[in-house]
C-alpha cells in the first residue's frame, strides 16, 4: 500500500511517463502531502519574516548608508565600495591570509572532532566516557579574551611558563606570540583547544544512531576493531561529515574576528591581517557601514560558490548533500 502511495508518485520522471498532465500530478502530490506542507508553514513564515523581509538591508553595500537617512534616502553609489575594496593595495595580502587560515582550519581543525569522537566511541567504560566528554566540552565556554590571556601566560617570553621550560632545556626562548611564522600555528592550536571537544557533540549524536546489531554481526564474522570502524562506524557518520563540511565552506572566509584581533601584533600583521580585522580597522575612524557590507557580500558570494560547488560534487558521488 505504501509502495504505491509513495515511491512511484514521488518521481517526476514517473509522472511524465504516465502521460498525464503535470499540473494534475502536482496537485495530487500536494494533496497527498498536505500534512507535510502544513508542518512546513511555520518554518516558511519564520524565514520569510525574519530572514527575507530584512534582506533589503543588503542594498546598503551599494549605497553610502547613513543611519539618519536610512535605506531609502541614502545615496546610491553602485559598485563604488567594491571597486575600492578590490583596488586596495592590501587586498592581495588580506585575501591570501584569509584563505590560508581557512585552509589550515579545514585541514587541521575540521577532521579532529571526528577523530576525537571516534576515539571516545571506542571507550567501553560509560562513566569514563561521560567524564571525558564533559571535560573536553568545557573550553568552548571560555571566551577568547580568557583563552588568549591564558596563552599569554604560557607562551610569552617574559616568564611564560612554556618558554621558561624551553629555556631550561635549550637555553633559548621563542617569541611565539610575536613572530609571524608562529602566528598560524598559535591560532589553529587555540581553535583546536577551544572548539574540538564541542565539535565532537554532533558526531557523537550521529554515532549514537549506529545500529549495535551490525557490530555484533561483524564480530561474529571475525572483523577486528579497525574493520568495524572502517566498514560500519565511518559509513554511518559519513553523510553527517559531508554535510558539516559543505556548511563549513559557507563560512570559509570568516576567520573569527575576536580571536584573530586579540592575537594580532605589529610583527605578525603581515600574515595575520584578514578581511574581518581589516574591516574593523577601517571602521574605527568611520563606521563605514556600506563598505563593511560590501566586504561581507564579497565573502558571502565566495561562500555561496563553494557551498554550491561542494554540494554539486557530493551529489555527483551519490551523496545526499544539503538539498
Amino acid at each position: 500500500m505504501k509502495q504505491e502511495m509513495y515511491a512511484p508518485a514521488g518521481t517526476p520522471v514517473a509522472n511524465a511517463r504516465a502521460g498525464k498532465s503535470k499540473i494534475g500530478y502536482l496537485i495530487k502530490d500536494i494533496v497527498r502531502d498536505k500534512w507535510l506542507y502544513l508542518m512546513l508553514l511555520p518554518g516558511i513564515f519564520y524565514f520569510i519574516i525574519f530572514k527575507y523581509i530584512p534582506m533589503y538591508g543588503v542594498t546598503m553595500a551599494f549605497q553610502d548608508y547613513k543611519p539618519y537617512l536610512g535605506f531609502f534616502e541614502s545615496p546610491w553609489v553602485g559598485f563604488k565600495h567594491f571597486e575600492r575594496f578590490f583596488s586596495e593595495p592590501q587586498f592581495g595580502m588580506l585575501f591570501r591570509n584569509t584563505v590560508i587560515l581557512a585552509m589550515y582550519n579545514l585541514l587541521f581543525f575540521f577532521p579532529l572532532p571526528i577523530v576525537l569522537s571516534l576515539m571516545m566511541n571506542e571507550l567501553r567504560h560509560a562513566k569514563f566516557k561521560n567524564f571525558v566528554q564533559t571535560l573536553v566540552y568545557i573550553p568552548h565556554f571560555v571566551s577568547w579574551v580568557v583563552v588568549v590571556g591564558i596563552f599569554y601566560i604560557l607562551f610569552t617570553t617574559e616568564n611564560g611558563i612554556l618558554n621558561e621550560i624551553l629555556y631550561q632545556i635549550t637555553g633559548q626562548k621563542i617569541a611565539f606570540l610575536l613572530e609571524a611564522e608562529w602566528f598560524r600555528t598559535m591560532i589553529i592550536s587555540q581553535s583546536i583547544w577551544k572548539e574540538v571537544g564541542w565539535g565532537t557533540v554532533i558526531f557523537l549524536a550521529a554515532l549514537a544512531g549506529v545500529d549495535l546489531q551490525q557490530y555484533e554481526a561483524a564480530r561474529i564474522d571475525g572483523a577486528g576493531r579497525w574493520r568495524q570502524l572502517w566498514h560500519i562506524t565511518l559509513p554511518a557518520i559519513r553523510s553527517t561529515i559531508i554535510i558539516l563540511f559543505i556548511l563549513r565552506l559557507g563560512n570559509f572566509m570568516d576567520s573569527g574576528f575576536e580571536h584573530i584581533y586579540l592575537m594580532l601584533t605589529p610583527t605578525n600583521r603581515e600574515v595575520g591581517d584578514v578581511f574581518d580585522t581589516y574591516v574593523y580597522t577601517i571602521g574605527m575612524t568611520q563606521a563605514q557601514y556600506s563598505y563593511s557590507a560590501a566586504v561581507g557580500i564579497f565573502k558571502s558570494v565566495i561562500g555561496l560558490i563553494l557551498v554550491l560547488g561542494a554540494n554539486w560534487l557530493a551529489k555527483k558521488f551519490g551523496e545526499e548533500g544539503i538539498y
Partner: peptide, 16 residues
C-alpha cells in the same frame, strides 16, 4: 541555505 550566507543585517531585522 541562502539565509546562512546573506542577511539584511542589524537594522532591518530590528525594524521587523
Amino acid at each position: 541555505l541562502f539565509t546562512m550566507l546573506f542577511g539584511g543585517g542589524m537594522i532591518p531585522t530590528y525594524f521587523v
